[in-house]
Structures are given as structure tokens and as C-alpha cells.
Computed example of a mutant assay.
Amino acid sequence: MAIDHSHGDRPKDALLQAAREQFERTRRQLRDVLARIEAGEAAAVAQLETARQQLSKSLTNAIQEESRFEEFCKAERGAVHGHAIDFDAARAEIGRRLARLRDSGGGGGVSGRPE
């Protein structure tokens, strides 16, 4: 099953963007609560811990989504265990090995019959 990338947005892109937007909204809410506290609004003090917890959760979520997105991108590029597969180098190595086999084989080829 193929994933349609024609719109330029992958599902992981959307999840990462949503996590970042959630983090930014939560940051703005925390700044608003702090501004209200600085303005002397006593009721805002009670909201401070809730806002801090939400910011912490949003940050954790954004970090996790960025990590998942990076893994998704590596998998899409063909990375295995953090290293991308270099198909050109692999092709060249196979060519070298085949050439050595040809050079050492005497040119008889494979007959399919026992010798």
C-alpha cells in the first residue's frame, strides 16, 4: 500500500505541527497567567500550577512527536539503525566482487553439470 504524498504533507508532519501548536498555545496561556499575577490578580495564582503542568505535558508531547517524526524520516530515507544505506557504494562493491569472481573463474561460466 502506497502513501500519497502529493499534497506535500505526510501524516507525521501534521502530528508534529499539531504538537508544536499545542505547545505554543500552552506557552501563551502560561504567559497570560504570569502577566495577570504580575498585575496583582490573586485568582491567577491558583491557575499557575495548572498552566505549568499543561506546559510540561505539551513540551513532552512535542519532543516525542519530533522524535517520532525524525524516526519516520529516517525510515523513509532508508536509514537502518541510524545509518542510511548507501546504494551506490553497495552497487560498486557488488560490481568489484563480481569482477574478481570473473577474473579468478577462468571464464568457463556455470555449466549446470557436476564436475
Rank of each mutant, 00 (worst) to 15 (best):
M1R: 06
M1T: 12
D4M: 01
H7E: 15
R10L: 12
P11I: 07
P11H: 09
K12I: 14
K12R: 11
L16K: 05
Q17Y: 12
R20S: 06
R20M: 08
E21M: 03
T26H: 03
T26D: 09
T26Y: 05
R28G: 08
L30S: 10
V33K: 01
V33D: 01
L34F: 00
R36Q: 14
R36E: 10
G40N: 03
A42F: 12
A42E: 15
A42V: 15
A44I: 00
V45N: 08
A46F: 02
Q47I: 02
A51I: 02
Q54T: 06
Q54D: 13
S58T: 05
S58M: 01
L59S: 02
E65A: 11
E65N: 10
E65H: 02
E66A: 03
R68W: 15
E70W: 08
E71H: 04
C73A: 11
A75T: 14
A75I: 10
A75G: 15
R77C: 04
G78R: 02
A79N: 10
V80E: 01
V80A: 08
H81A: 12
H83G: 14
I85D: 02
D86G: 00
D88C: 01
A89L: 03
A90H: 11
E93Y: 13
E93D: 11
G95A: 09
L98G: 06
L98K: 05
A99W: 13
A99M: 13
A99V: 14
A99T: 13
A99F: 09
L101R: 02
R102D: 15
R102T: 07
D103P: 05
D103E: 15
G105V: 00
G108Y: 03
S111Y: 05
S111Q: 12
R113A: 11
